[in-house]
Amino acid sequence: MALLELNNVTKIFGGLVAVDSLSISIEKGMIYGIIGPNGAGKTTVFNCITGVYKPEKGKIIFKGKDITGFSSHKIANMGITRTFQTIRLFNEMSVAENIMSGRHFKSRQKWWHGIIHTPFYYKDERANWLKVKEYMELFGLARLAKMTAGSQPYGVQRKIEMARALATEPELLILDEPAAGLNDKERLELVDTIRKIRDMGVTILLIEHNMDLVMNITEYISVLNFGKKIAEGKPEDIQNNPVVIEAYLGKEEEDE
């Protein structure tokens, strides 16, 4: 059984079909890529999966369960978390507090712990902060713990966002253009990090414009154009697929 399955998902914005009966299937443990030209509807797909948008038609099935139309927090709690194309951190807060937000669901504190601190509270609080420490160490953020997230350089902010998403201990991690705005060194680091995350048993779905990166790390790719899937397959097949080259790769060469 696939971990995540999209069946004929369609999303329409005021007459414009942003995603047109898209079906994909992601196996557990994979690094799956979605590529396509600008405006192809990739981010919209992510927004449908994470419950930000409700698709007009089709089904989204996660671990055999229909999650179509679920609210975002419910989907996150089921094990799907994401990063954003335009980084969305809690800018005024510290790096550690940002990552702690990912522990929200895993923390077993109840509403009354916001009023009275019981012995359980202290135990739970400590356990979760130590988890945060682990994730900070994993991403090399430990010495920045107390620093304000919003004042960090772009590459670091990307890491914080990934650490935050990972702190929820997801089964599926969705990365929306993780390499955007990174320099070459940071991009290499990112490849390592993504592999490391996958080796922790997390399935990864990503959108990326950087072709080297996509071809390098993904195991399976779907290509979108105007909301429709025009091809899918292994990276090497996609690279040689004439339809894809025409729709996307060729065009990109012209751009550059």
């Binding site: 609210s71 975002s72 709690n77 951190l89 937000s101 712990h113 929820t168």
Partner: peptide, 27 residues
């Protein structure tokens, strides 16, 4: 007690970015 607990932090998170908060699992 509020500001050093999960519910208190959740308030800050949803204040600063409601969508990001939802997407990491905060109701």
């Amino acid at each position: 007690n509020l500001e050093t607990s999960k519910p208190g932090r959740a308030l800050h998170y949803l204040n600063l970015d409601s969508l990001a908060s939802e997407c990491i699992g905060i109701n």
